[in-house]
């Protein structure tokens, strides 16, 4: 497994340019642009809908020029439908889960990557298998456990299950990354009298930062976008993350699609921003688990 995070290089294969290539490439680009726009049509439609009124759409149809452009829908979604509260909750759940899962998996991954011991591979395989479990096999016991720990309907319950569940994938990725770090670095540190924990903290962790960054970006979107655990472990509307909040919003604004799409669009902003600014890491993260 070569899961070392490589910088994304430009592709090296390129076709030799022919004489009619300008004409051909123009046709190809027109075709690609049309296809990309068609592909994004559902998203574009949601954006357009958000700036129109439901009256306008139901009387004139979607495929007409808007009678007026309004920001009213965003205002309603943000204030009345409380998307602002839900978004804040999403962060309150996602950030601690992210820190927890990265920290715990880096500890576990360090042990699995650096030491030979009898249970090493079985533990490693267990983490891999865990990443592929269907959530349904965990729902009822975790629901029961959070109830008996009196954590039901708290955000801590969500933080705990996200931390635990995402550990499988993070440990898998970090373990493989850490194995690429040459052991000579640690031998030198040991001569200098560094202890095991210090070597983890001062050497391995800083060296793993590229992998951690890729993982963090990917995990942020995964945890942020979770819907199932939120509806299982939370009841109070004021605690819900934005995914579960949107389901409530849909019930509330049943036929007012412009408000629903504006709420949906606002709720994607954080992950879209992460994607725009950390795109490289996001793509690396996606391929981290699969480069075999």
């Amino acid at each position: 497994m070569s899961t070392a995070v490589q910088p994304l290089e430009k592709p090296t294969t390129s076709r030799p340019a022919g004489s009619s290539s300008i004409w051909r490439s123009t046709v190809m680009h027109i075709f690609l642009i049309a296809w990309a726009l068609l592909w994004l049509l559902p998203i574009i439609a949601a954006v357009v809908t958000s700036f129109r009124t439901m009256d306008d759409i139901s009387t004139h149809g979607f495929w007409t020029l808007p009678q007026e452009i309004t920001l009213e829908n965003f205002d309603q979604a943000w204030n009345q439908a409380r998307v602002s509260v839900y978004l804040g909750n999403s962060f309150k759940i996602t950030i601690p889960s992210l820190i927890g899962t990265l920290f715990l998996s880096s500890l576990g991954a360090y042990a699995l990557a650096r030491y030979k011991f009898r249970l090493n591979l079985p533990i490693y395989f267990m983490f891999i298998a865990g990443t592929m479990l269907p959530f349904q096999i965990l729902l009822l016991p975790v629901f029961r456990l959070t109830n008996s720990l009196r954590l039901y309907d708290t955000q801590l319950a969500l933080i705990l299950i996200h931390t635990a569940f995402q550990m499988g994938f993070c440990t898998f990725v970090l373990r493989n990354f850490m194995r690429t770090v040459p052991s000579e670095i640690f031998d030198a540190a040991r001569v200098d009298g560094a202890g095991e924990f210090l070597m983890y903290w001062r050497i391995m962790l800083p060296l793993s930062l590229p992998a951690m960054a890729a993982l963090a970006t990917l995990e942020f979107t995964w945890i942020f976008n979770d819907y199932l655990w939120a509806i299982i472990l939370l009841q109070s509307d004021s605690l819900k993350p934005v995914t579960a909040g949107l389901a409530t919003l849909k019930g509330q604004f049943n036929t007012n699609w412009p408000v629903i799409t504006s709420g949906a669009l606002i709720s994607t902003l954080p992950t879209v921003l992460v994607f725009i600014f950390l795109q490289r890491y996001f793509i690396q993260g996606l391929t981290l688990g699969s480069e075999k």
Partner: peptide
């Protein structure tokens, strides 16, 4: 354009 739907939650995709 092709991989941007990946960052959008399934909830939002369902609504859209």
């Amino acid at each position: 354009s092709f991989y941007s739907p990946l960052v959008i939650s399934l909830t939002v995709i369902g609504l859209i």
